[in-house]
Design a protein around this nucleic acid. Structure first.
Lengths: 204, 204
DNA sequence: GTCTATACTTAGATAGAC
DNA sequence: GTCTATCTAAGTATAGAC
């Protein structure tokens, strides 16, 4: 039996966590009640408090779950910069984006959404989103593009606007997708290709 | 005295409406209570119910306020298409975006944010956002670009990805700005210029 | 650790005096 | 139209039995 669906095999604390990720991302943190979480896990509300002291603590645990997996998967910037010296610019840019092991990818995407939507309501969510969702991409992209230009591997281009454009697009798709906007993987890749077509390798 | 700040000069119904626009956009619809609105307008909660029968009805009035102003300001697509036959492509594209009279611009931006954030929680907000915020831009842009290519005034380009990119960027900035992302008018214009640099006039 | 029962708080909404 | 007072529902959280 798949351990994810075998109720007895997964500790209640984890089952609460994953139910919260799904409910918070689908319905929003404020609109998700402890009753909803309890119902999803098939326990009583009071039992949740044996594992987490408050709803807020569940949210923090969700962010910690993200952070821990993020740190495992995040590529080292210095490594990318060294790679930039020898590899083709497009290969270098591919390294800037990174993905998680398939079985946690969905949870990670959902957590980004949760944080993104709570930005205005809760400072810890804002800090989280700023650091992991936006800040990292912005900084990495800026640094890598500057280095590629410095190495003469791509033609000079306006770094700031390109970075901002990509951040808004990435974040926008993370937050808004499956709402009024629906973007499939293929359309998303076509958009990315379009933006990347602004980056012109010199052939060096 | 500025009539906006002269309590007695503005009908209570309107003061409730504008307080709601500000509070819903700053703190979210769910996190704004009737008590908050009453406090902002400096009346008692019960008095609000003399003007609106429910909190939901206030939200609908907010959307009606938007729709009414939108219909006054929205340029006619056929007019843009005729304009495309004689004008420079960049002038044509400038007409696709439109702005409101300065004193309502801020309210209109705020209402877009309110709707965007409620998309997943409330079908009427989703429908509203889809129609006025996304659908219109997407359709207009697609039609105008296709026409410009047909007229041979710009070089062929992938219309769908460009449209999607611009929609996500526009909507992303509307929804996410002043959160983890901060984009000033200048940076926004630089981004738009970057995207528009993908559109190459043929010189005809 | 999980349960039942319940305390406490805040929200939306209404009744009826003025 | 605005007020005071109050109702009802729903949410978070706790106490204490098992």
């Amino acid at each position: 039996m798949n351990p994810i669906f075998d109720k007895s095999a997964v500790p209640t604390r984890e089952r609460i966590l994953h139910a919260a990720i799904k409910l918070f991302s689908d319905n929003g943190y404020n609109s998700t009640s402890m009753r909803d979480i309890a119902a999803a896990v098939e326990i009583r509300v009071a039992s949740i408090y044996s594992h987490y002291s408050s709803k807020e603590e569940i949210l923090q645990a969700v962010y910690e779950f993200f952070t821990s997996n993020w740190e495992k998967a995040c590529p080292d910037l210095n490594e990318i910069l060294r790679f930039a010296e020898t590899a083709h610019p497009y290969e270098v840019l591919q390294k800037v984006e990174f993905h998680y092991e398939p079985h946690i990818q969905e949870d990670m995407d959902r957590i980004m959404m949760i944080a993104a939507r709570r930005i205005r309501y809760d400072p810890s969510s804002a800090e989280f989103a700023h650091k992991y969702v936006i800040g990292h991409l912005e900084h990495t992209l800026k640094t890598v593009l500057a280095r590629l230009i410095e190495l003469g591997k791509i033609e000079p281009l306006p770094i700031k606007p390109l970075t901002v454009l990509l951040c808004y697009f990435s974040f926008g798709t993370a937050v808004l997708n499956s709402t009024v906007l629906e973007i499939g993987l293929q359309a998303w890749q076509e958009c990315m290709a379009l933006v990347f077509s602004l980056i012109k390798p010199t052939g060096k």
